[in-house]
């Protein structure tokens, strides 16, 4: 079985936010909920980098550990999903998550939380694949269609990688080699790539 992973290449992400938009459109995510977001660090300063972040589908997920109703489960592909029929919208997963992935639609008084919504790695939920109930609650199940998450599929610079962990790391390793990483020149600087050929 595959072990599904996201990886965002900080050297390639151009903060176009297309992944955010594509995700919202594909899954018809409600207002106020963003399953994916792009965060720019050092905006406008030297060393500015952007990263697209969503649920990272942790092996030992803190959200699952802290959930008072135990609504999380991990699929055979290593995707962390949750059951919205069980979820009570307490918000504990949001407090525990390192990436701020769990989101809550606020539709009642005092913005009280509805049922949690988060990135599903385009793998739907516990309902039958391609059922309308699944689509309504969790969005499209692209994994069951044999497709990878849309955010990564349509990323224009291929900064966002999604798929089997081994494939993702193979692709990223090749990039690192081509960028001229060496003992002399750690990291991924294009400026110093010429050092390698000297």
């Amino acid at each position: 079985m595959a072990r599904m992973k996201f990886y965002c290449d900080a050297e390639r992400c151009i903060e176009c936010n297309a992944c955010v938009t594509a995700c919202k459109n594909e899954h018809e995510v409600p207002w106020g909920v963003n399953r994916r977001r792009v965060v720019t660090i050092k905006d406008g300063e030297p060393g500015e980098r952007s990263l697209s972040v969503a649920c990272m589908h942790c092996s030992d997920a803190p959200c699952a550990a802290v959930c008072p109703v135990d609504c999380f489960y991990t699929t055979d592909d290593g995707v962390v999903l949750h059951d919205k029929d069980i979820c009570i919208g307490c918000g504990y997963c949001f407090y525990a998550c390192p990436f701020g992935a769990p989101q809550f639609p606020s539709d009642a008084a005092f913005a009280s939380r509805g049922k949690m919504d988060k990135c599903t790695f385009c793998a739907g939920g516990p309902e039958d694949d391609h059922s309308s109930a699944e689509y309504k609650k969790y969005g499209r199940n692209r994994l069951a269609e044999g497709k990878l998450p849309l955010c990564a599929e349509m990323c224009s610079t291929k900064a966002l990688l999604a798929g089997d962990a081994n494939m993702v790391s193979d692709i990223y390793r090749k990039r690192i080699v081509n960028r001229g990483a060496s003992v002399m020149n750690w990291g991924v600087s294009y400026d110093n790539a010429k050092l390698r050929t000297r």
């Binding site: 955010v20 977001r37 792009v38 972040v53």
Partner: peptide
């Protein structure tokens, strides 16, 4: 913090440092 086009609570923060401690 960083910056983000997504405007929601703590959306500008990439890594939640205290979450694990609390959990």
């Amino acid at each position: 913090q960083g910056s983000s086009q997504v405007k929601s609570v703590d959306s500008k923060m990439l890594i939640n440092q205290q979450g694990d401690l609390w959990a």
